[in-house]
Computed example of a mutant assay.
Amino acid sequence: MKVDLNSDMGEGFGPYRLCDDEAMMDVVSSANIACGFHAGDADTMARMVRLARDRGVDIGAHPGLPDRQGFGRRELPFGADELRQQMLYQLGALTAIARAEGVRVSHVSFHAAMGNMVNRDAALAASMMAAIRTIDPELIVFGTAGSIIEAEAQAAGLKTLTLFLADRAYRADGTLVPRGQPGALVKDEASVRARVRRFLVEGTVAAIDGAIIPMRARSILVHSDTPGSLDLARLVRSEIEAAGGEVAPVSRILR
């Protein structure tokens, strides 16, 4: 079984960095690179692209809202076309940098509030997916199983890869526990290990209320800004391999 291990990366700015991106790039198989709005800048994007290229890691665009102070996690009152242009601006920037380095962008993974807004509005999601397809019909869209993002991407003829968020708690209906609520972030190694092992062996996850829910996914996400993210990513990789799986980039999973 091939399983992708991905992380949101390059989420610093200038000299400021959230995690050890170089070390993380040695662990993951796909990198979702911040494209300059919620975090990142041209130099950081180029550094991430080069690191990924040299390590055989797939490169993904990680577009978010233009809100550095809120790290793209606050919903802002943008219209549908404004959001579409913001996404295209960021995807275009990373696409150009990647091409200049002799590689291509393989996937798109929405960041935080932008993703929440898209995933709540089927018409907005359809507009976003149509725009993504015009840039590159081979782009793969990351999303959770059964989501509006997944449905509209597939309706637009795009491939999708479903995610299991190893460091975020789920509610019984399969949605994430909102950040800021107690227990939303799962960061202790024992809990992450148990969650990943259950997912790999049984295809399920324990919700925050104890309910066991199905988890249809082929990729595991560890957020780089989660405390101890590098160690958690290494733990997840070791669990995949211990279960007889192979850590592989998205482009090798969805051939």
Rank of each mutant, 00 (worst) to 15 (best):
D173A: 04
A207I: 12
S191L: 12
I208V: 10
A190I: 10
T44S: 09
A145D: 15
V103Q: 01
F110E: 11
E150S: 04
H62N: 13
Q181L: 15
I253S: 02
R47E: 12
A194Q: 14
I33V: 15
A125Q: 04
V49Q: 05
S30A: 02
S109K: 15
P249K: 03
A248L: 13
P249L: 00
L230K: 13
A112Q: 05
S191V: 12
A42I: 13
P137Y: 03
G203P: 12
E75A: 14
R53K: 13
T160S: 13
L254W: 02
A100C: 12
V27F: 08
N6S: 10
G244A: 10
S7K: 10
P182E: 09
D8L: 14
D81V: 11
L18Q: 12
G56W: 00
E22I: 08
G245S: 04
I213Y: 11
G157Q: 08
D67Q: 03
R216A: 12
E152I: 10
G183H: 02
P249A: 06
S109R: 15
Q69N: 08
A169F: 07
R53F: 00
L94W: 08
M48D: 05
T160N: 14
F13R: 11
V247C: 02
G10A: 10
G10N: 07
E138R: 15
Y170W: 05
M114Q: 09
G146S: 09
G174N: 09
V222D: 03
G203W: 14
V196Y: 03
A42W: 06
F142I: 02
V186W: 03
G180I: 01
A233K: 09
M25C: 13
R216P: 09
G64Y: 03
A190S: 12
S106Q: 13
R195S: 01
L185G: 07
Q154H: 02
D41K: 14
A61M: 10
A113K: 01
S191C: 10
R216W: 07
M87W: 00
F110Q: 11
Y16P: 01
A206W: 01
I253P: 02
F199E: 08
A23K: 14
